[in-house]
Amino acid sequence: MKILITGVAGFTGLYLTSAAEVAGHHVVSLQADLTNKSAIEAELRQVSPNAVVHLAALSFVGHANDAAFYDVNVIGTMNLLEGLSSLPKRPSCVLLASSANIYGNCEVSPITETQSPSPVNHYAMSKLAMEFMAKTYFDRLPLVITRPFNYTGLGQGSQFLIPKLVAHFSQKAEYIELGNLHVEREFNDVRMVCDAYIQLLTKGVAGEVYNICSGKPFTLKDVILTLERLTGVCLDVRVNPAFARANEVHKLYGSPKKLENCIGPLRAYDLQDTLQWMLKTQ
């Protein structure tokens, strides 16, 4: 199967490309700028993909330009879907990567796909807007929407929490400055997420939304204690108010039931194994 992936050079894109090729698929990277509608249409006509995974997005919640979230995550996605819907032979599946951040602060966990969205930042709002916009293409394209919960792995940008922690422990730093310590998250492995994406391309039901999650949350203290155990290093953890986000989502973990009913049990990656993998190359 010829799979077109947007955002191939990004963190997730690199692992998804590898997973797809190992599974015997041919991967093509979208080269056009998502904000350039005519360039996208021309490239799609040339490639004529059998399936599409749309990963390209602004994904760092603390990005300085709020308007850019909507330019890329909403308008860019609309340009892509418009181009795909105009192809003579449309793909068998178009997987859109949204985000579990659209759920916001939920009083009840684990979170299911039926939970009402309540985004608390522009990144999450842009992803929710993307989902609603995509629904207007349900009659033209076989869309599958995914909402991945937090995940990490080797090569993720240092602006994200887990790579920042791993780097500080590897370098035996005296201290680390963090924002809100009272958060509870899933910290899944990027390889698990990519395995789910590959399977959803053939097993996912068009028009459905799937949480990509393990349902196993960890506190920041859990992560720090695991890194202390793995490295023998103890850091002085300092709270820097400048790093604390307004409207922080305090608890975010999901139910994988719908996903597992669709594709079967996910390959499990223990948090310690993921952290050890990330530490080895520091």
Rank of each mutant, 00 (worst) to 15 (best):
122 H>W: 01
250 H>I: 07
199 Q>M: 10
235 L>N: 12
85 S>T: 12
41 E>Q: 14
107 E>F: 00
81 L>A: 08
169 F>R: 03
191 R>E: 04
3 I>C: 08
24 G>C: 08
213 C>Q: 11
39 A>M: 01
99 S>A: 11
122 H>A: 11
11 F>H: 09
177 E>T: 09
59 S>E: 01
36 N>I: 01
121 N>P: 09
203 K>Q: 15
245 R>A: 14
174 E>V: 11
259 L>N: 07
111 I>H: 00
233 V>S: 05
158 S>V: 13
163 P>S: 10
217 P>F: 04
154 L>W: 06
15 Y>F: 15
200 L>C: 02
158 S>W: 03
200 L>Q: 03
63 H>I: 00
225 L>D: 11
118 S>G: 06
13 G>E: 07
54 H>N: 11
63 H>M: 01
98 S>W: 02
214 S>R: 11
41 E>M: 09
31 Q>A: 15
188 N>P: 00
150 N>K: 10
227 L>G: 08
159 Q>K: 13
74 V>T: 11
159 Q>R: 14
33 D>F: 01
184 E>M: 12
245 R>Q: 15
256 P>A: 14
168 H>K: 10
189 D>E: 02
208 E>F: 07
271 L>R: 00
244 A>G: 06
249 V>D: 05
280 K>M: 12
179 G>N: 10
69 F>T: 09
209 V>R: 00
56 A>I: 07
95 L>Q: 01
135 K>R: 14
194 C>R: 02
259 L>K: 07
18 S>W: 12
278 M>F: 06
126 S>E: 07
161 L>S: 05
27 V>K: 03
100 A>G: 15
135 K>T: 13
85 S>R: 04
170 S>K: 09
7 G>Y: 01
146 T>P: 02
191 R>C: 05
279 L>A: 06
254 G>R: 03
163 P>R: 11
24 G>P: 06
282 Q>I: 01
228 E>G: 09
282 Q>W: 05
78 M>T: 10
179 G>Y: 05
58 L>G: 09
49 P>F: 00
247 N>Q: 12
11 F>R: 03
187 F>I: 13
172 K>L: 05
166 V>P: 08
37 K>P: 02
168 H>P: 04
152 T>Y: 05
149 F>I: 07
242 A>E: 15
34 L>G: 08
265 P>H: 15
280 K>F: 04
114 T>M: 09
276 Q>R: 13
186 E>L: 04
235 L>S: 12
15 Y>V: 13
156 Q>C: 05
32 A>N: 05
72 V>P: 12
105 N>K: 06
255 S>C: 14
173 A>C: 12
253 Y>M: 00
185 R>N: 09
